[in-house]
Design a binder for these strands. Sequence first.
DNA 1: CAGTGGTCTAGACCACTTC
DNA 2: AAGTGGTCTAGACCACTGG
Lengths: 246, 246
Amino acid sequence: MPTLERSNPLPLYYQLKEVLKEQIHAGHLAPHTSIPSEPELVNSYHVSRATVRQALAELVHEGLLYRQHGKGTFVCEPRVQQTVSILTSFTEEMKRRGKRPGGILLISELVRGSETIRRQLQVTDTEQLIRFERLRTADGTPIAYETDYLPYPRAAAIYGRAREVAEGSLNSLMIAEGLTPSIIEQKLSADRANKREVELLAIAPDEPGLRLFCILFEQTGAPIACSESFYVGSRYAFEVTLRSGR
Amino acid sequence: MPTLERSNPLPLYYQLKEVLKEQIHAGHLAPHTSIPSEPELVNSYHVSRATVRQALAELVHEGLLYRQHGKGTFVCEPRVQQTVSILTSFTEEMKRRGKRPGGILLISELVRGSETIRRQLQVTDTEQLIRFERLRTADGTPIAYETDYLPYPRAAAIYGRAREVAEGSLNSLMIAEGLTPSIIEQKLSADRANKREVELLAIAPDEPGLRLFCILFEQTGAPIACSESFYVGSRYAFEVTLRSGR
DNA sequence: CAGTGGTCTAGACCACTTC
DNA sequence: AAGTGGTCTAGACCACTGG
C-alpha cells in the first residue's frame, strides 16, 4: 500500500485522491465493489477523517465513486467515470477517441469583427480582435471548419505564436499564456454548410451538419475567446455525459 | 438577516446555502462583489467554519460563487450561474426558456425491442420493454419527435401511469416512482428526418435536424431508460454550459 | 502587517443499513 | 448491536493577497 508524504508539497487529501484513482484505473477496485470505509482509510493512511472525506467528496463529484448511507462507498462503472466532453478541446477529444488530431491554419489576422462578437468578448471601442480560420482534421479527414476570435491586446501573446495554432492546440496555447478557460458556453444547432465550408470540407451542398457557437470564460466570468464551427454531420457526433445532483 | 434553525431537520450547511442563494438571486449580492468572509459568516450564523466551508464549496461547485486565495469569495456572473442543460428534461428546459411545454403521447406499448437497446438497458432475455412515442411541443409548435424505452418489470409503475406521460413529464414521473436519473449519456448528431418524422413534424423531407440518443442511469450506473429523438433544426438549438476544473 | 481562503486535526453525535 | 456515511464543533497552522 502506498503511503502519503507529509513532506510532499501536495495536500494530503490530494495525494489520497491520486492513490485511489490509481487503484481504480488499474482495476484493483472493480466497479460496484466497495472501497475501504472512512475509519479504515483513516487508519491506513494516518490522516484525519475530514481529510479522507474531502478526498472522497471530490472523487464522488468527479464520478469515480458513489456513496450509500449506511452501506459504504463504491466504485462507479467506467461509463459513469467518463469526462463530460462536448468539445472543450477538439485536439483532446480526438485523442480520447483514438484518432489523430490535425489541422490547417488558413488565416490569422487582426480585424474589427461584428458587433455581436465584440459584445460577447466585451472589448472597448478601439480594441481589435484576433481572428483564426482553421480546418480541423481527424486521421487526415477534414471534420470541421472553425473560426476563432480573441481580444487583441489581451491575447497578444497568442497572436505572436499563431504558427503553433496550426497544429490545433489553441486551447493548450491559451492555458500556457495564462488565459485558462473555466466556463464554456455552447450553442449547438443543425444547419447546412455555406459555400466556403462546402468547398473546404469537400461535401455536398445540402449535407447536414452541426453548427457550434462557443464562448470561453475565465473563472471570474471574463470572456477570453469565442468561436463558430461547422461539423460535417456524417463525420462527427457530439458526446456528452452529465452528472446531475452535483 | 435570516437565522438558521437548529430545530430544522435540514442540515445547517444546507440552510446556509439556501440563504446565500436567496440573497444572490434577489440581487442583494451583485456579480463580482464579495460575500462576507468565512469568519464573518461563522459569527453571523453561529456555526463552525467547517459548516460554512461546506456550504461555500457546494455553491462554488454549482457555479454561484468563485474564490480567490487571499482575496475573498465572489458572486459569479449570471451566465456562469446557468445550469448545464443539454436536455435533462425537455419540460424543464422549455420552462427555463419561457416557452409552454406540451406533447402528445402517440403510442404506449410493451415490446421486445432491438438487441442494441436491450443491451443498453441490460434486461434479461425474457424481460420486455415499455415503449412510448411522443410528439413534443413548445407554445403549441411541434419541436421534436421522441421514442422512449424503459425496462418493463422495473418501471411497471410508469407504464401504469402512462396517461400522465402525455403531458410530457416522463422525467418527473420517473423521479416520483423512485427511478432517479443521475447520469445522462448523450450522443448528438446532424441528420435528416425519416418519413414518419417528416409527417408528424410537418417539415420538408430534406430539413436538417438533430438526432439525440440518450441513456439515463441511476447513481450506481444501472440504466433506467433510453430514448431517441429528432429535433427540427430550424426550431430548436441545444445550449450547454460547462464548468471545467470541477 | 492583517485579512483572506486552504489544509488538517481529534473529537462528537446522528441516521441509515445489516444482522 | 455494530458498522457505515452525514453533520458539526473548536481549534490549529499555512499560503496568498493587499496596504
